[in-house]
């Protein structure tokens, strides 16, 4: 019962979380490719409300001064203040979430080696990762519907081929096979091609489990009395699929989507983490994290771990929603009740 009460909020939270990511990516303070060459590896900018004289003011940031002795260490000159404003139109016509009055700079989560704003890149990278997960899920589920319905309805050798194919795929360690397939394809590709390859490969490897589930549902539905009865009314396969079988699949599909999206997002992250997904300069949480490996502790640049926090939050939320959806969408059994 408690799960039921949380069902709607959970789904809404998840949806708004991803919409927020995509929306914020659009409203990010900087572009994901904009390099601030004078400010590489800058720590998060502090937003202050008290000026050196001890007076309260509207939020502002101080002028950032690169220190002369080493790259990546900065001082602040608070005699020069830049007020922070929310929801301001930027030069390129976008509405920007927040920004410091130029020429002030506000890096909420610092910058990377090339002086790019980690906050803006995290949002854009999240969009790439989420889009990969979402698209791969959609393609995989389409394949699964096709395979599951063909196998479940036709039976015989199509069923044998599809089921065995799915079992074969499930008997293999996904990441290894993914890497092998990726190895056969060109490594250096434009970002769009790499994105398409990631979506394609993930969905080709991922259709097996939902297809088997759907096949099971189709098979059990096909043997239901009411399907037999409809056939007695002269119903053809299209009618049966549309009226009796698809409505049963909807619940399974919803639950599977909720499970697969985070799973595929993680595969995308792994792929681009290993350098085989979308590549620089296009961000994805995976590529961003792969650079963290070396910098996180050695150079004490903890702020580069921000995408990891976002990723964990997303997976956490998705997991909750998947669990509640799974509970909700289980087919309702009809209470057998005799007079």
């Amino acid at each position: 019962m408690r799960e039921c009460a949380w069902r709607l909020p959970a789904a809404v939270t998840l949806l708004s979380w991803y919409m927020l990511l995509a929306g914020l990516a659009w409203m990010a303070p900087y572009s994901w490719r904009e390099q601030h060459r004078d400010f590489p590896a800058a720590p998060p900018t502090r937003i202050r409300m008290v000026d050196p004289a001890g007076e309260w003011r509207m939020p502002f940031v101080c002028k950032m001064v690169p220190s002369s002795d080493s790259v990546g260490s900065y001082g602040e000159d608070c005699r020069v203040r830049y007020p922070v404003s929310l929801l301001q139109p930027a030069g390129d016509g976008r509405m920007v979430l927040f920004r410091a009055e130029s020429p002030g700079l506000l890096f909420l989560f610092g910058t990377d080696d090339l002086g790019r704003d980690v906050f803006s890149r995290s949002l854009a990278g999240g969009t790439v990762t989420f889009a990969t997960g979402l698209l791969a899920t959609m393609v995989a589920l389409l394949l699964a519907i096709l395979g599951g319905c063909l196998a479940g309805l036709l039976g015989g050798w199509p069923d044998l081929m599809i089921s065995r194919g799915a079992e074969l795929l499930m008997a293999l360690p996904v990441l290894y096979v993914l890497l092998a397939l990726r190895a056969a394809l060109p490594i250096q590709t434009p970002p769009a091609v790499a994105f398409a390859l990631a979506v394609g490969l993930i969905s080709i490897l991922g259709w097996a489990r939902p297809a088997r589930l759907l096949r099971g549902v189709v098979m059990s539905t096909r043997n239901e009395g009411y399907v037999m009865a409809a056939r007695g009314f002269g119903a053809g396969p299209i009618y049966l699929l549309r009226k009796h079988i698809f409505p049963r699949l909807r619940g399974v599909l919803g639950a599977q989507a909720a499970i697969l999206i985070p799973e595929f997002m993680l595969v995308e992250v792994a792929l681009s983490f290993l350098g085989l997904g979308v590549a620089e300069p296009v961000p994805s949480w995976g590529t961003m994290l792969s650079s963290v490996q070396y910098d996180l502790v050695a150079d004490r640049r903890w702020w580069l771990g921000f995408p990891a926090v976002l990723l964990t939050l997303s997976i956490l939320l998705s997991g909750q929603v998947a669990r509640t959806l799974e509970l909700q969408l289980q087919p309702v059994a009809v209470a057998p009740e005799e007079s």
Partner: peptide
Amino acid sequence: AIPEIVLVLLILAMAQ
């Protein structure tokens, strides 16, 4: 809920 990849990075950071 913590993805494996984040976990490894955390352990790596701690190890270092």
